[in-house]
Amino acid sequence: MKLLIIYTHPNHESLNGAFLQQVIKGAGENGKIEEVRVTDLYGEGFNPVLVFNKQKRRRDLDKDPELVPYWDNIRWADKIVFIYPIWWGRPPAMLMGFIDRIFVSGFGYRSNGGLLPEGLLKGKSVVCISTMMGPALYLRLWLNNAHKMLMRKALFNYVGMKDVRFFQFGSMESPKGKQQAKLERVYRYFRTVQ
Rank of each mutant, 00 (worst) to 15 (best):
D64A: 01
P65I: 05
F103Q: 15
E35K: 15
R152T: 07
I86C: 12
M94T: 06
K54S: 15
K153N: 12
R140T: 00
D78C: 11
F52S: 14
R185S: 09
G108K: 05
L120S: 09
E66L: 04
K56W: 04
L50W: 13
R37N: 10
F169C: 12
D163L: 02
Y158F: 15
F156P: 06
N47R: 07
G17I: 13
V81N: 01
L143G: 00
K148D: 13
G123I: 03
F98V: 12
L41N: 11
E44W: 00
G113H: 05
Y42D: 00
L139N: 05
P48N: 07
G17V: 10
D64E: 08
R90V: 04
Q21V: 02
D72K: 14
V127A: 10
S111R: 14
R75D: 14
G177L: 01
L155F: 11
D60K: 11
G134E: 03
I86W: 00
T131I: 09
G119I: 00
G113V: 05
V164D: 09
Q179H: 07
L183K: 13
R58W: 10
R101E: 05
D40Y: 10
G160E: 02
K54M: 14
V159N: 09
M149V: 11
E184K: 09
E29P: 14
K32H: 14
N157T: 09
I80E: 05
R57L: 10
G31D: 13
P65N: 05
N53V: 03
E66H: 03
Y158D: 11
F107C: 05
E173M: 10
W87E: 03
F167V: 07
V127G: 10
W76Y: 08
P117L: 01
G89P: 06
M149D: 15
G28A: 09
L137G: 06
G97T: 11
V164C: 12
M1R: 14
V38C: 03
V51E: 13
R152M: 04
G134W: 02
H12D: 14
N30E: 07
Y84T: 15
T192D: 08
K56G: 06
E184T: 07
L115I: 15
M94N: 08
L115P: 11
R58K: 07
K54Q: 15
V126T: 03
G123P: 08
F166V: 14
E44V: 03
M132C: 13
M96D: 07
S174T: 02
Q55G: 12
D62W: 03
G177H: 03
G123S: 12
M94H: 01
Y189F: 14
S105H: 03
V51C: 14
N73D: 13
V104W: 00
K153F: 11
P10Y: 03
V23P: 01
G134Y: 05
L121T: 11
P175L: 02
G43N: 07
V127C: 11
Y7I: 08
Y158H: 15
C128M: 08
R59E: 12
P65R: 06
R101N: 08
W87R: 01
R110M: 10
Y42F: 07
M133F: 06
G108T: 09
R188H: 13
A146W: 04
I99N: 15
K63P: 10
G177Y: 01
M94F: 05
M172C: 13
P135H: 02
G26K: 05
D72R: 13
G134L: 06
L137M: 13
G114K: 15
